[in-house]
Design a protein around this nucleic acid. Structure first.
Lengths: 210, 210, 210, 210
DNA sequence: AATGAATGAGCTTTCATTCAT
DNA sequence: GATGAATGAAAGCTCATTCAT
């Protein structure tokens, strides 16, 4: 008699389930047909809820869009975070784990790549939206930078600051470029090739460690 | 036989002028307000032509969009071509000239970056549209590859094929990444930093030449 | 047996308090934003009750509107009644007291003037609604008529019936007109001027008494 | 072959006819079902035009409403103006002609009375709207005042200023009151009674002239 | 008696497209 | 070729009402 109470599936009173359902439907549609064609009618149809629901829970379609991208980014961050927890301290390993995660099926797939680009294509993103979609941001960048700082110190590199900045910025730019390429050439895209190229970039900057 | 040749100043016959005016207005609007908000009414207003003009000359708004992105890519290619004509044969110089051009004000500016991303955000690009917007394509890729092939041969590199492929793919990915970063951080973006990072990537693969 | 009588301070049982709260909120909103914009959401928000309350107590929003105008008219009548109780028998004094009351701050103020006009603007008032909003009705009209009958008799006026009818109808029409003017020119409206004009009208019909 | 050109009844290209058709349909509906129930769908249905027409010609439903009340007031003024042109100089006659016109079938009828009250019922009229709907304004008031000034001078009345103001204000208020009464008791309303009452009011103030 | 999440008909508005001129 | 008034499907949104709790 497990889940005795949670299971009243068809019930009213499930605001959170409805909100999540609307967000998922929105992200699915964005990945399939793009933001402009993602209409209220299609969203509610896919989520299987009534017309008024979007405005009841989010206030407007635009606010639902913001909530969707926010949820998308939070999911992305959560996956990354989980990867980082399980990884050893060795800075090279940490960076490569991050890259491998970023290029893995869980984060880089057709749905996510399309969603990224859809949001990037928004002309004048509201500050809210912009904050969530900057260069793959925050956590990943910090972890990377820390790792590169460690490497630069070990190497007694001159102008270590610039080295670290270049490594971080370059790696992130390469990852961005991979996402673009994945979207354009999904069939022929190779995760192994992508990883090797990024590794080569980093190896070029920190030759003693690769 | 009055106005036998209007060519002098206005250079084209009215129809051609109207078509180009519509395309420019469309690209301007896309860069300013995005594809979804670029309406027929705004386009004709900015181009200063009558309502029926779009359908008269392009058949539909969507076909005008295709024509606009095509024109945008052709302009991009033309600029690149001009750069390549003036450049010496030295492969390192050719590649770096290409990169410098790609990162220069003429090709990488707010308008162009926004247009690129707007078209990238289209979910299901028609094959037409897709062809024009793949990874910065065709000519640039070929020139790069040729240069890297030359370098790889000079180095007698083992597995030169993969080296060339990685160098080409990586450089293009880095350029893509730079465009994304430029869009997200227009203020703080540094063309010099971007160029140096790409040079470091290439230098890592062809250490003898940098 | 706790809270056996809640009567003490809050005076009524909860249901009655809720009904009155809803009616007051409704009248406030009508005076502030008009009937069309007075939505269920705004009413319950202002009354501080839950969504279902209106239908629970009144059956529908429209029925609440009827109840509100009814309550408004009853309050109006009650004020008038109180004035009449305190007034001497002299017919001229009675009429003038009525007029003074009607033009006084208690009955003629921005809130009440707006509410009157809002209900007047209802195109096809239900018979219910219409009954409550006719020319300032019932009691006031009767009192006035009685007074004018007395005056006409004292004057041995020929065609006294018509005189009485004209005096009554004219006085009521003037009062209506004052309400309209008050609404249009709240700032410059003068209660003294209004009273004097009505007095002049009556004085013209019953010159011996003024 | 009369009216060769004007008669292409069903033609496109008749913006003015469409605008007037929409305004008339709007006023009809307001008089029949009130402002809140006068929807775009009903207006276009009655006017026999397509959905987009309202926004094409007026910009929005609200602007159509403004245009409608404006047209209504202009029609009212035009009728009054015509009456005044044909009337002799005698001030008593001028005032009475104005009153007779105001109470006549052409200006005071069920449609117009309902429209007046519908617009009066608007809670927070835009300045535009308010200007058109003040106390029956402008022209009529001026003409009345002029006539009363003449009468007051002829009478060498003391405090002629106040007399004139009271006469003007009172007459307008009485007319307003008549409109309200007409709306409430259309069946039993008597134009003759109304006129006589107003005449009695004026006669009371200027006894030598009646 | 009281709650408030959920519903869906119907609202105003937008906009690509058509076509008589 | 060129025009722009006209169209109507479809968009986002509102809101009185319902009903399981």
């Amino acid at each position: 008699m497990a889940q005795a109470k949670t299971d009243d599936t068809s019930s009213k009173r499930a605001p959170e389930r409805h909100k999540r359902g609307l967000i998922d439907a929105t992200l699915d549609l964005i990945s399939e047909i793009g933001i402009p064609d993602t209409t209220v009618s299609l969203i509610i149809e896919r989520a299987g809820v009534s017309r008024g629901m979007i405005h009841l829970h989010f206030g407007s379609k635009d606010k639902l869009l913001i909530a969707a991208i926010r949820a998308f980014c939070e999911d992305y961050d959560a996956v990354l975070e989980r990867v980082l927890e399980d990884v050893e301290q060795n800075p090279v390993e940490r960076v490569m784990a991050l890259i491998r995660a970023d290029l893995g099926e869980a984060l880089l797939n057709e749905r996510s790549a399309r969603i990224w680009h859809a949001f990037r294509g928004v002309a004048n993103p509201s500050p809210d939206l912009k904050r969530y979609c900057g260069t793959r941001d925050g956590r990943a960048r910090d972890v990377m930078k820390d790792a590169f700082v460690t490497l630069a110190r070990q190497d007694h590199a001159q102008d270590g600051d610039m080295l670290v900045r270049d490594a971080t910025f370059g790696t992130l730019a390469l990852l961005e470029g991979m996402y673009v390429d994945y979207l354009s050439n999904t069939q022929s895209f190779s995760r192994r090739d992508a990883e090797r190229i990024i590794r080569r970039f980093i190896a070029g900057l920190f030759p003693d460690h690769f």
